[in-house]
Design a protein around this nucleic acid. Structure first.
Length: 727
DNA sequence: GGGGTTGACACCTCG
DNA sequence: TGTCAACCCC
């Protein structure tokens, strides 16, 4: 408690009733959450009565880690997870109460798209008339609002919405038949369970007596409804958030949840955390300048007692490769000269695709890095194929998975056969996967399949697939999931598919092996259970989050993924018009505001140094000639300094940022004489103890060379490397 | 009717 | 850069 300021302490000590914590960036939010959990436990609340909900897996992991650090073993009892993982737990336990099988499949955005296309095909709506992806998004938004197909239809106006309403009806029926839920359904079904089933409601309200929600500004209506039901009349609900950091409206986030909290929960207490402990003054001023241009926001003024710090360093690059080169040069520079650990550095970008040139260069230079999120592991074709097999085994009604495995390997079953199968199956209440299995029955196909309208050749091919599935079913009853994967690859012929891959068979194999390795930790649950758990949890993983913890690597991630994190040095790259702000936000001022908040999130991740890079030329999509982002231009010139600037480029119009005069001399006024003498011993956070061997005063700083034990010679900037002189 | 090939086209952010 | 639909051949 002693390390907390008054506002933080108030929030931590609050026990009963609703509490809203407005927590500005870097104001010690996570600290408040962890301390509050500790305080609750200290006041006699059992850990398993506490539920902490975060937005991303990464945030959940981090919170769990911090709790272990703070309260030790009790932390294991606290329920920590994302909204979706908590709903998954609820559904795994109780979905049968809603009339679903426990082996339901979880459909991600990709699977959803297939189902939308299927629904459109069923309704004879041409794929060219409305975009299936747009329809999928619209359906997801409807689910965020808990609007059923029926409710949606009543409100639907205009060409697109009226068609979407029809597709939505059909889509939902297809999901139901496939025993599948999408991400929206996961929240919704949990809400329904709590609303409709008094026994279940009593159980969960009794279990989760104290609820904490992080990033509350990013919750949607369905999530609000869930919290409302879980919290019950006692409403020991503590929400923490910052409207300035709302960046998920495209996922249905509704700012009213946080802005109207006191209205939703009338006796709520409110605490504002406005002191920033993270960033230097210049970084904080830069962030304030960017966010100040927003019109609608709750009044907050962040302040800091930290030192002024250096200016925001601008890097102007020729193109995306040059940008990566310059940024990596700077990464190596501050690692070597300032002694900053690589884990304290992050490169942030608007879109995942931007990571590529950086990754290539990191690999080439042998600099350790870790990539968060991205074109992930679970989106690899081979990984999805194997998962589709597993899902088809776990849930024989799963349509998307069945149709995926039908063609890997090629079996002589095509679109026509599948369409006939689906149609006939729907009439008699059988899923294609079930029909295939029945065709493979030992005594021949049962009589109810007599009028299956297929050519003999197609029937035979389908029976063969059915045989494979029956074999896998039997294996799944005996083997835990990791071993099942090994056998599956052989039994299904997927082995040959990989070997004959024209592109990168080795890499694909490695991914399949890695999937098996990821499955191993579920083996302890035994044959069927390990399969179900693995599939359900794999569906919620959005990034290969199990990077070797503790390795000293530079982090590469999107601004979205960076929320909630902090780094000593942040490189915001691709700071160009049409990229950030993203071109898709240009027509809509609401979306443009969200881009601005995203920029604010990026800037406020930085503790000590902030670099912003932009290229004058970028290949690929968008215009090739680029201009610096408006967000950079919104930062007062005196806070900016060019670290690197290009000479005039032939054929490219000049465009630079206005950089103020006071920015030039970097950080604090340079020291006039040396403060650390040769021969003194110093301690460094990363390198340990060392002996000062030489030093000098440069234009901006005092630099010393230190011999560290077991590390070697390092050149350090005194104002930056937090050195402790040992007497 | 299946499957290979080719050409067009889109590609933001996440559980 | 990869995916997907249209097209044509077997």
């Amino acid at each position: 408690m002693s390390g907390l300021n008054d506002q933080q302490r108030t929030a931590v000590r609050h026990v009963h009733g609703p509490l809203l914590v407005f927590a500005g960036a870097g104001s010690g939010k996570t600290r408040v959450i962890t301390y509050r959990v500790a305080h609750l436990i200290q006041s006699g609340v059992a850990p398993w009565h506490i539920l902490a909900v975060t937005f991303t897996n990464k945030a959940a992991d981090e919170l769990r880690e911090r709790l272990v650090h703070l309260i030790g073993r009790d932390a294991g009892g606290v329920h920590v997870g994302t909204f979706h993982s908590q709903c998954l737990r609820i559904l795994r336990r109780d979905i049968q109460r809603l009339g679903w099988e426990p082996d339901f499949s979880i459909y991600d955005a990709d699977d959803q798209l297939r189902m939308v296309k299927q629904a459109m095909a069923d309704l004879a709506i041409p794929l060219t008339s409305i975009s299936p992806a747009a329809v999928r998004n619209e359906i997801s938004r409807a689910k965020d609002e808990l609007a059923s197909p029926h409710v949606y239809s009543e409100r639907a106006e205009g060409y697109f919405r009226e068609l979407t309403a029809k597709v939505y009806h059909r889509y939902q029926a297809l999901l139901r038949n496939a025993q599948a839920v999408d991400f929206g359904d996961m929240i919704w079904l949990a809400v329904r369970l709590l609303r409709e089933d008094g026994e279940a409601r009593a159980f969960y309200q009794g279990r989760f007596r104290f609820i904490l929600v992080d990033e509350y500004q990013d919750t949607n209506h369905a999530q609000y409804a869930l919290l409302r039901e879980l919290a019950g009349p006692g409403a020991n609900l503590c929400v923490v958030g910052d409207d300035d950091q709302s960046i998920y409206s495209w996922r249905g986030a509704d700012l009213r949840n946080i802005l109207d909290f006191e209205h939703h929960f009338p006796n709520a207490s409110v605490v504002k955390l406005e002191r920033n402990y993270r960033s230097t003054q210049r970084i904080l001023r830069a962030s304030n300048a960017v966010i100040a241009k927003l019109e609608r926001r709750s009044a907050k003024t962040l302040w800091t007692e930290r030192e002024a710090g250096g200016p925001v360093q601008i890097i102007e690059a020729f193109d995306e490769e040059d940008e990566a080169r310059q940024v990596l040069g700077e990464v190596r520079e501050i690692a070597a000269v300032r002694g900053l650990a690589r884990r304290e550095m992050a490169i942030m970008y608007r879109t995942n695709a931007q990571s590529r040139p950086f990754e290539e260069l990191f690999v080439r230079l042998g600099v350790p890095y870790q990539l968060v999120g991205a074109i992930e592991f679970y989106n690899r074709k081979e990984v999805r194929d194997v998962l589709a097999y597993l899902r088809a085994v776990a849930n024989p009604r799963d349509l998307v998975s069945f149709e995926r495995i039908v063609t890997v390997p090629k079996r002589g079953i095509g679109a026509t056969t599948l369409a006939a199968l689906r149609q006939w199956g729907a009439a008699v209440g059988l899923a294609p996967g079930e029909i295939a299995r029945m065709l493979a029955a030992p005594g021949g196909a049962p009589a109810r399949l007599a009028d299956l309208p297929l050519q003999p050749r197609a029937t035979k091919a389908l029976a063969q697939l059915g045989h494979v599935l029956v074999t896998l079913d039997a294996l799944a009853a005996e083997l835990p999931v990791a071993q099942l994967i090994t056998r599956l690859v052989q039994e299904t012929g997927y082995h040959e598919v990989l070997d004959n891959d024209p592109e990168r068979p080795d890499e694909r194999w490695e991914n399949v092996v890695a999937l098996g390795a990821a499955a191993e930790k579920y083996d302890e649950f035994g044959p069927r259970e390990s399969l179900a758990r693995f599939l359900h949890e794999a569906a919620l993983v959005s990034d290969p989050d199990n990077f070797a913890a503790g390795t000293d690597a530079v982090t590469l991630l999107t601004f979205h993924a960076a929320k909630g994190l902090e780094f000593g040095a942040v490189f915001m790259v691709g700071m160009e018009e049409e990229l950030f702000p993203h071109i898709r936000s240009y027509e809509d001022p609401v979306q443009m505001d969200e881009e601005r908040r995203l920029a604010y999130v990026g800037i406020t991740r930085a503790k000590d140094v902030l670099y912003c890079a932009y290229a004058r030329h970028r290949s690929g999509w968008g215009s090739p000639v680029r201009f610096p982002s408006r967000f950079l231009q919104d930062i007062p010139p005196e806070l900016l300094a060019y670290k690197r600037r290009l000479d005039a480029l032939p054929g490219i119009p000049a465009a630079g940022l206005v950089v103020g005069p006071d920015a030039a001399p970097a950080r604090q006024p340079p020291p006039s004489e040396r403060s650390i003498r040769d021969g003194q011993r110093v301690r460094h956070a990363v390198f340990g103890e060392g002996l000062v061997v030489s030093g000098s005063i440069t234009k901006f700083d005092e630099e010393i060379t230190v011999m560290f034990e077991g590390v070697g010679l390092k050149k350090l900037a005194v104002s930056f490397a937090k050195l402790e002189v040992i007497r």
